[in-house]
Design a protein around this nucleic acid. Structure first.
Lengths: 233, 233
DNA sequence: CCGCAAAAAGGAGTACAATCATAAATGAGT
DNA sequence: ACTCATTTATGATTGTACTCCTTTTTGCGG
């Protein structure tokens, strides 16, 4: 729709070089959105972007990285929307639901591509820059989840003047578990025909368990420093 | 190369036909174990099994299903070991650790294949019989986890003679969350160089949160029947 | 034993992601 | 403007999973 790439045999080389990246991005984005990841060939993307087949792989290391490239942007928008509409206060369960619901719905817009995106994120090579970007978005969502949890903990343990405000426990494990649940459920959803509502209900019931576990006073556990468990690539 | 060379002119056709499946299984198992999933070609498997290239795909729909086929067996053994060594009683956290530790260690024996196995399970086609088998093993582990949780709940809420023994809540969401955490961590581990101990500690810290959430008296939740979330094709 | 239909196996062929040797473009130094 | 080194683009080629039409084998009724 925006660029109408007429096969201009003489023009290619003379074109502005710096927008080649943009042409490839747009081509991949449009084709994946229209036909779905699996049905699109890298050849088609190259043709639509009006570059040679091999050129595509100078801007992304693999077909799946092309998907990461275009889907990161879409995912980021969904995440920003979720962050924006997160109520600044309230029950933990409701705030988490508010945060996750847009993400789940977004995933359902094109569930084939969402599954492929998850696959590229989970199984892609560490050398792929766009995968790194995707992992950062993943971290960012976990961060938001952790904040909601920690805030909830602080509120819950605020009204005891006797206690010297024992610090909130590390919310990272709970946030990570919630993310795992979200991802797992999203992928499962592509293989079944559950409704979004059903999927969301399943996710939230798991999230509920996890957030209760976080908020529940822990029985003086050996806090195995979980901060070292980060992806170190 | 005009015509096919006759590698073994007399032998192939006259062999016992019914063990072809077994030959293919053995060939795939050995080659995957020795060289790793990615480095093995279906051609190699065919050669080692002494069948034609196309024949392999009459016994498995895809290369990844070959992996599911052979890895299911290995995984089942690990699961049986874990079930066997599960202490019949004790703290929930310890029993869950006993259940999951062998699985995590097993995954580390050949983490490349384990990741590929997870990938085949999560993203494979619903028409693949061996994937269905893998999903059943997944369910079985979740079942064991759920049992440990439910048993723990029963013990914890046993000593109140006043209450008319309110029934244990559905442990399925917690079990699913624990499985998601396990799978997610296993896959992550292949991209990092964390030690098994570290990986396990990370998993158990998440499992702890989840099991505490399950055991903690829930605020009367709508138990969305999670049994319908199954792959239905 | 002999057709003969159905099932199984064969292996050349296909599609496609990804590579790589070559070629073109670029720009810095003079 | 002219080299020449470096960066970038090209597209034919390759490796490989998977398909598809053909051939072989099998089992069965006469």
């Amino acid at each position: 729709m925006p660029t109408a790439p007429e096969p201009n045999p003489a023009g290619r080389r003379e074109r502005n070089k710096s927008d080649k990246q943009q042409r490839i991005f747009d081509a991949a984005d449009a084709l994946f959105a229209e036909h779905g990841y699996a049905a699109v060939t890298t050849q088609q993307i190259a043709e639509r972007a009006d570059v040679a087949a091999g050129t595509v792989f100078r801007y992304a290391l693999s077909k799946s990285e092309l998907l990461l490239m275009v889907h990161n942007q879409r995912y980021r928008r969904a995440l920003e929307y979720a962050e924006l509409h997160l109520p600044p206060a309230g029950q933990v369960a409701e705030r988490l639901a508010a945060l996750l619901t847009p993400i789940v719905h977004f995933g359902r817009l094109n569930d084939e591509n969402t599954a492929a995106y998850g696959q590229a994120m989970l199984f892609g090579s560490s050398h792929e820059p766009y995968r790194t970007e995707a992992l950062q978005l993943m971290d960012r969502l976990q961060q938001r989840v952790a904040e909601v949890l920690a805030t909830g903990w602080a509120l819950q343990h605020a009204g005891s003047p006797g206690q010297p405000a024992l610090p909130a426990p590390d919310a990272a494990p709970a946030a990570r578990a919630i993310y795992a649940v979200l991802l797992f459920a999203s992928i499962q959803a592509t293989h079944t025909d559950v409704s979004v509502e059903h999927e969301l209900a399943g996710i939230l019931s798991q999230v509920d368990v996890i957030s209760r576990g976080y908020l529940h006073p822990a029985p003086a556990h050996n806090a195995t420093s979980a901060s070292e468990l980060h992806d170190s690539v």
